[in-house]
Design a protein around this nucleic acid. Structure first.
Length: 214
DNA sequence: TTCATGATAAGG
DNA sequence: CTTATCATGAAC
């Protein structure tokens, strides 16, 4: 099936383009709706157009990463460090691996439910700040892996909006390809997580330009 | 800086 | 089967 929103992700010429489309988009999961304010683009394997050693799909298709190889606009949910659920949106055509990690969001609707899932949060902006927290706030589990965000699923949907100005910088927590500035965020949002370089990553080798873009 | 905690994938 | 490796978060 082809929907306007899905086409933007499917036809992306570069991971950054897919990431841009997701920035500022709204993700609805059940009673909770959130505005995505921070994402990270991940590429695919050596066969594809965007080889990315930091991507789960870099070593080829496996049961876990299969959704990344599928059509655009599907949720790829994985368990991180045995205790968090992190969510990606697949991009690129069917057969080509690509995914954008959703790193942070502002809660728009469903504050009460989010509060029950994230006890002890004092600031609203902390509820979905960081990819593990985002998964927790939205109540994501492995059951959500593969869900079509533009399909008939009544509860889990993605709403793409107009492109917003953004800033970019290196990705968080990865040991390889650590300096690709494929992390994008909306400047000024309190929900954007802090940058933390992996201790396993080599010393900085590149300089990136972090001016605001549009 | 440390560790909690378990799925995953690669290797024997 | 065994084991190294995490796209993390929170506490210390």
């Amino acid at each position: 099936m082809t929907t306007p929103g899905r086409d933007v992700l499917r036809d992306a010429d570069h991971p950054i383009e897919a990431a841009r489309a997701l920035l500022g988009a709204t993700l609805t999961v059940g009673a909770v709706r959130a505005r995505i304010v921070e994402v990270e683009a991940y590429g695919g394997d050596l066969q594809g157009p965007w080889p990315d050693p930091a991507s789960h799909s870099f070593r080829g298709r496996t049961p876990r990463n299969a959704v990344m190889f599928g059509d655009a606009g599907h949720l790829y949910v994985y368990r991180s460090y045995g205790m968090h659920y992190c969510a990606n949106v697949s991009y690129g055509p069917d057969g080509v691996a690509g995914g954008v990690l959703l790193r942070a969001a502002e809660i728009i609707d469903g504050h009460e439910l989010v509060a029950s899932r994230r006890p002890g949060i004092s600031r609203h902006s902390d509820a979905a700040r960081g990819p593990g927290n985002l998964g927790s706030a939205l109540g994501l589990t492995l059951d959500d892996n593969g869900v079509d965000l533009f399909g008939t699923h009544p509860d889990t949907r993605l709403g793409l909006g107009e492109p917003t100005p953004y800033r970019s910088g290196p990705r968080v927590g990865i040991a390889v390809a650590a300096d690709r500035p494929w992390r994008l965020w909306i400047p000024g949002s309190a929900a954007v997580s802090a940058y933390r370089r992996s201790p396993r990553a080599p010393a900085v080798t590149e300089r990136w330009d972090d001016r605001v873009r549009d």
